[in-house]
Computed example of a mutant assay.
Amino acid sequence: MSGLDSNPFADPVDVNPFQDASVTQAISGVNESTGEYNPFTANEMGKYTETTIPVSKTSSSQPAVLPTSVEQSPQATAAAAQANLVKQQEELERKAAELERKEQELQNRSNRDPGAKENNWPPLPRFFPIKPCFYQNFEEDIPEEYRRICKRMYYLWMFHSATLFLNILACLAYFTADAAKGVDFGLSILWFILFTPVSFVCWYRPVYKAFRSDSSFSFFFFFFVFFFQVAVYIIQSVGIPSWGNSGWISSISMIRTNLAVAVVMMVVAGFFTVNAVLGVILLKMVHSKYRNTGASFSKAQQEFSQGVLTNRTFQSAAASAATSAAQGAFSGNQGN
């Protein structure tokens, strides 16, 4: 009845589950066995002395030493800086001397007369007693827009010379087949010796000078001479008998006498024909270039007059003639 006599309106009693007798006994037993544990106490440290690994077994015997920076003395620093400055100054002086030398070479090249340059054509060996007579350099003398046509004229002259040499061989074969054709063989040698240097001087060098210095006089001189050269090519390709040329007429006349000689002569006749055709084509090409240069006949006359007046040979001849005339006039006055 005691449970029924309790007051249901009274405050309930707080019940703490940890105040149970069995829980309290378990907690007190754990606290007594553990206590306050400190792993760094002497007793605890002593337990692991036998199991620790010495440092000397895991690391190298030599301790790590950081490199120390060596500071140079002010005298050494100044000496090194002075040596560096001297080296730079020598390098600058060397470059300045090299630039000055190149500039002087360019200035001398621009101011020097093309005729005063060292001759390099024909390319003869140095031990040869005859020295080169002309200076020729397409890359340096001839402008780029005229360089190709000028080289073609040079190749035409070489082909012209080779054809004259082959003409000697063909006329020699002609002479062996017919003893009465010795005149052709002799004239073929003369044409080779005469026309090879004359063609170089009279029409190749003028066109080279014309393209080099844009000379109207050189252009007109080239046109005048080369026109006759084309006419000579045509005559040589025709092959008039006893004229020293292995042309078509002479070669065809030998077909019945000696076929081998006739074939050789026909080859040379074909070369003369090619020379004539190339001569006409290159003459027209040079004329088209001439029209683009602005050259004219009046400029040619002016260049000719200036060239004659500035020629030392002409000046000396004119001075001698004037002196002789003056002396003659003075002697005539004294006689009177």
Rank of each mutant, 00 (worst) to 15 (best):
L187P: 08
A97V: 14
N137T: 11
S69L: 02
R101M: 04
S215R: 05
S6E: 10
A260G: 14
F192L: 02
A231L: 08
P114R: 14
A300D: 10
P143F: 01
A260D: 15
C171Y: 00
A179T: 13
E50M: 03
F272I: 03
P125Y: 01
F228S: 13
A295M: 15
E145I: 09
T41W: 00
M266I: 07
Y37Q: 14
T51E: 08
K209M: 05
S33I: 05
A319F: 01
I27K: 09
A78V: 04
F18Y: 09
E44C: 01
D20W: 00
Q107L: 04
N167I: 01
L92E: 15
R101D: 09
V55Y: 04
K289E: 14
N311C: 03
N275Y: 00
P197C: 05
S316V: 13
F165I: 01
L106N: 09
P123R: 03
S237Y: 03
Q306T: 14
T273Y: 00
S22Q: 11
A269I: 01
D20H: 08
L282V: 02
I189A: 12
N245M: 01
V55N: 13
S6P: 05
P114L: 10
P54S: 13
M285V: 09
R126W: 03
Y208Q: 08
V23P: 06
R205Y: 01
V268A: 00
Q72L: 06
E50S: 12
Q107T: 09
H287F: 02
D141G: 04
I27H: 08
E44K: 07
E93Y: 00
V274W: 03
A26L: 09
N43L: 08
Y155P: 12
F227L: 11
P114Q: 12
T293I: 03
E139W: 00
D214W: 10
A78H: 06
V70S: 15
W121Q: 04
A21H: 08
I255L: 04
F220E: 15
E140D: 15
V23R: 11
C171P: 07
W243S: 13
S161R: 07
Q88T: 11
Q229F: 02
R109M: 02
V55E: 12
K289C: 06
T49G: 11
R126Q: 13
T51Y: 06
Y48W: 00
N311M: 01
F226Q: 09
A295V: 15
V261G: 14
F223L: 05
Y135Q: 04
N7S: 05
G270K: 03
Q334V: 07
A177R: 14
S242W: 03
